[in-house]
């Protein structure tokens, strides 16, 4: 069942991209700058060496916030490459702050693009710095997102962006501690409103 749904989604993306490919609004070299802000939802934390996996608010992470910016340049009239920087914060149930700062390369695909509307599918890959209590970590980071956008002038627009990302908390086995038993993947879903400037 899950496979069928996945195949349908992939087919839908291909069909839509085929339909819309005739009308290309962007040209190679065009640039897009966006500033976004919204909420950061905890999804789940998966432990690689135990079954203590937790979901949603059982992660003991509360709904937090996110602020970010990104800059991209069109490599073709459908693909844009650039970078993004975000600052995300959530509170644990003990009211201690969990901070996540992803710095990523961002590749976006525009299956639908026009003077008024864009639909953007993006992949982010990079590193994220995160901090909780006295612990600090720099981790590999991967995220995907979807973003419909509306342009009320030729250059300025508003968009919604929702996605899911994963942060790895990985430790090597050591005789001095058992942190390697705590290796975990933390999944989060930022949902943001963004202001877009294109040129």
């Amino acid at each position: 069942m899950k496979k069928k749904i996945l195949i349908l989604i992939i087919l839908l993306i291909f069909v839509l991209s085929g339909l819309f490919s005739a009308n290309k609004y962007y040209n190679t070299g065009d640039t897009v700058f966006s500033f976004n802000g919204g909420i950061n939802l905890p999804d789940f934390i998966l432990f690689s060496k135990s079954s203590d996996n937790v979901f949603g608010f059982d992660t003991h992470i509360q709904v937090g916030g996110t602020l970010g910016l990104s800059y991209q340049v069109f490599l073709t009239n459908s693909l844009a490459l650039g970078g993004s920087l975000s600052y995300r914060f959530n509170s644990s149930i003990s009211s201690d702050l969990f901070v996540l700062v992803p710095i990523t390369a961002k590749l976006s695909y525009y299956p639908f693009q026009s003077e008024k509307f864009d639909l953007i599918l993006s992949v982010d890959a990079g590193i994220s710095y995160f901090r909780y209590l006295e612990g600090k970590y720099v981790s590999p980071y991967v995220g995907i997102s979807i973003s419909p956008s509306y342009f009320f002038t030729k250059s300025w627009g508003l968009g919604l962006e929702a996605g899911i990302n994963v942060n790895y908390d990985i430790y090597f086995a050591s005789s001095s501690n058992n942190k390697s038993l705590h290796n975990a993947f933390g999944f989060f879903s930022p949902i943001t409103l963004k202001v877009i400037y294109r040129h």
Binding site: I45, F47, D52, V54, D58, T59, H60, I61, S92, I93, S94, S95, D96, F98, I127, F130, Y132, L133, E134, G135, K136, Y137, V138, S139, P140, D169, Y171, F172, N177, K179, H182, N183, A184, G186
Partner: peptide
Amino acid sequence: TIFSLFISCNTNAEEGIFYQIINSTKN
């Protein structure tokens, strides 16, 4: 540079960060 940053962090905490969070308790 990135790799050295990656392995040098969180040396001062005795537990994994996500592990600490899921074991946090409500004040």
